[in-house]
Design a protein around this nucleic acid. Sequence first.
DNA 1: TAATTAAATGAACGTTCGTTCTTATAATAT
DNA 2: ATATTATAAGAACGAACGTTCATTTAATTA
Lengths: 203, 203
Amino acid sequence: MARVKGSIGSETKAAILSTALPLIAQYGYAAVSMRQIAEAVGVNVSALYNHFPNKQQILVRLLMDHMDGLMAAWSEQISRGQAAEQLEAFTRFHIRFHIEKPQAVFISYMELRSLEDDGHKKIESQRRAYEDVLRQIIRDGINTGEFNTPDAHVAAMSIIASLTGVNTWFSADGRLSQKQIEDNYVDLTLRSVGYETKGKSYV
Amino acid sequence: MARVKGSIGSETKAAILSTALPLIAQYGYAAVSMRQIAEAVGVNVSALYNHFPNKQQILVRLLMDHMDGLMAAWSEQISRGQAAEQLEAFTRFHIRFHIEKPQAVFISYMELRSLEDDGHKKIESQRRAYEDVLRQIIRDGINTGEFNTPDAHVAAMSIIASLTGVNTWFSADGRLSQKQIEDNYVDLTLRSVGYETKGKSYV
DNA sequence: TAATTAAATGAACGTTCGTTCTTATAATAT
DNA sequence: ATATTATAAGAACGAACGTTCATTTAATTA
């Protein structure tokens, strides 16, 4: 056969990405074949190569788009005020974003090792930039005396891992609402860096 | 050829497991082939099937052994005293164990999805049992008034994720020693559940 | 010592893999 | 209207996959 009526390259490309994402999240990059992706999209395998030079570039694009989206979303988030307020804002933002895009989050953590040199370096540096945001908030809090924690880097890594973990157990129809979970994590996070909540509770 | 001199089944089996572990940790279960494992062990592919019925069972055994080892190690760890002391003991234990066995930890988190029904259920229930340990400590602390945190389950999930994350960035020749990191995490963890450190610092 | 079992090899099975090539036709540019 | 480009299908490539089989010989048991 030949080109089908109504086919638009950009739409097929987008469909490939949005189709590949959940497949890779579920089975892993190596375990998902180009044929699987093509069938789910509804095109022949070879059509994938009109839009991506190879399988690896599909993964690279997925991860880059995710990290770009993460950084862009944080940039839109205006947060003023003291370090404590900023940390609360970051906590809520991170949880929300990671609950909204569980699949992209999952593969961005799991499939880093599947990336070859170039893509790997880019994603890593984007992740570091994101972590820097949190590190800087904590440093500010330490400097102003709002926070009491021995090391900004360790605190940042602890908090990011803690928040990202929500992704693995959150269920929309679970015992707790997203807001309750957010509130709870704000409490845990602020307390962890020694912020004096002075009896006030965040939940 | 035939059976080689000095070959002992149990040793080959152990070699297969210890060889497969780092390979799977590095490349992922789906991306590692039986031939790769065999070559690294130094035997022919078909020899693997004298010791495991299929590829999947290698992964199952790796994950089961890891979880068994984790539970057994915790059982040996005698921890008495108040909830705070128990939480400190758990924190140190978890970090140590996860730093000692980074590869097994990695795949036990990453490759759960690669497990089929039976193995999946077993590993999940072992993990739940381990998480229960922490949940119970936190419940105790809440009941005795030592801790001040809204939800034992959320706190437990937050802490486990936070501690396990050390695995992803710890480097033996990094800026901080393992002891320093442990101490720092004890501080972060106890504070996060609202334990009143009364000015004393854990680092 | 003879019989049996355990542990290995190497060839081979059918299947699937990522990718390339040729060809057809829709959409677009000239 | 014609030429060109974009987008698709389908066949085919060699390589690699997990697994099985027959065979050989070391180690163990009877």
